[in-house]
């Protein structure tokens, strides 16, 4: 299997002396579904932006599809076109990503920037709109859409570029439970289609459900665990240490007990001892 990304000794600093990422070694294989998990501020978003060629390592190397991914390389129109058409990024805040005047223009933006013919652009727009069930909202301005619709439009606007790799930043945040389930189905479809998915999240249950590999970032911005969901989620001490789960004390009938606790709907009951079904007194 070929590697989509190879990162070696990557460090990134927004300000000198305050790294957002430190000593990152990471290889992402084509077709893998990787969840990057970590507490707020651990560098997940920076890592995703780096995979999308929006920020670059202060030191260390990153290669995408075998070629160095640098600011200079992206200045080359041919490389940029190739890279941008292969990699799609769904931002955490749909409001940031939806910058056109209506949903149709939003979906057409990427293909138009790639210089595709008008017919091809329209075909892709309608195909993506049909896939994500947003045909009825195509002529509406983004601010009249609900949160779930915005997310769909944001994802569709990336899908029209038909990327091989999808980068998703906190995809389940701001989604109601039904939309979260829908999103997990979409991720499953992409897996069948052989696309590579890298998502940043602190929703462990979503990560466990859809990813086949989990990478844990610590609060000092390094990778502290990397493995299958089963391997990683069993390391409770570690997950506690990086602030992804927390000790939680509460009472059942007359006995108090402590256990590790993760938040998020549909949490794995083995890991996250939920409250449901325990109200009996």
């Amino acid at each position: 299997m070929t590697a989509d990304y190879v990162l070696e000794g990557v460090r990134h600093e927004y300000r000198a002396g305050a790294p957002a990422l430190a000593a990152i070694d990471l290889t992402i294989l084509s077709g893998q579904h990787v969840a990057i998990v970590g507490a707020n501020g651990s560098g997940k978003s920076t890592l995703l932006k780096m995979l999308d060629g929006l920020v670059f390592p202060t030191s260390g190397d990153i290669r995408a599809f075998g070629a160095p991914l640098t600011a200079d390389a992206l200045e080359d129109p041919a490389f940029r076109r190739d890279f941008r058409s292969r990699v799609g990024f769904v931002f955490q805040e749909a409001d940031v990503q939806l910058f056109c005047s209506d949903a149709f223009d939003e979906l057409a933006f990427g293909p138009l920037q790639l210089g595709l013919a008008r017919e091809e652009v329209e075909r892709r727009v309608h195909e993506a709109a049909w896939q994500l069930r947003i045909e009825q909202v195509l002529d509406r301005p983004p601010y009249t859409l609900s949160g779930g619709e915005k997310k769909r439009v944001a994802i569709a606007s990336v899908l029209t570029m038909q990327p091989h790799i999808l980068l998703l930043d906190e995809p389940t945040s701001a989604l109601d439970p039904r939309s979260q389930v829908w999103l997990l189905d979409v991720l499953e479809e992409w897996k069948q289609e052989g696309r590579t998915v890298v998502m940043a999240t602190h929703d462990l249950s979503a990560a466990a459900e859809s990813a086949d590999r989990i990478v844990v970032l610590s609060e000092d911005h390094t990778i502290v665990a990397d493995g299958t969901p089963e391997e990683v989620l069993l390391q409770r001490e570690l997950l506690l240490a990086v602030n992804l789960i927390h000790e939680h004390t509460h009472r059942h009938a007359s006995t108090a007990h402590r256990h590790a606790h993760a938040h998020g709907p549909g949490s794995d009951p083995d890991l996250a001892h939920g409250h449901r079904g325990r109200r009996r007194v």
Binding site: L54, R81, R84, G88, F89, F91, F99, S157, M161
Partner: peptide
């Protein structure tokens, strides 16, 4: 952020 989102889509 918006600029990043635009760059990201080519």
């Amino acid at each position: 952020d918006v600029y990043d989102a635009m760059l990201s889509r080519g």
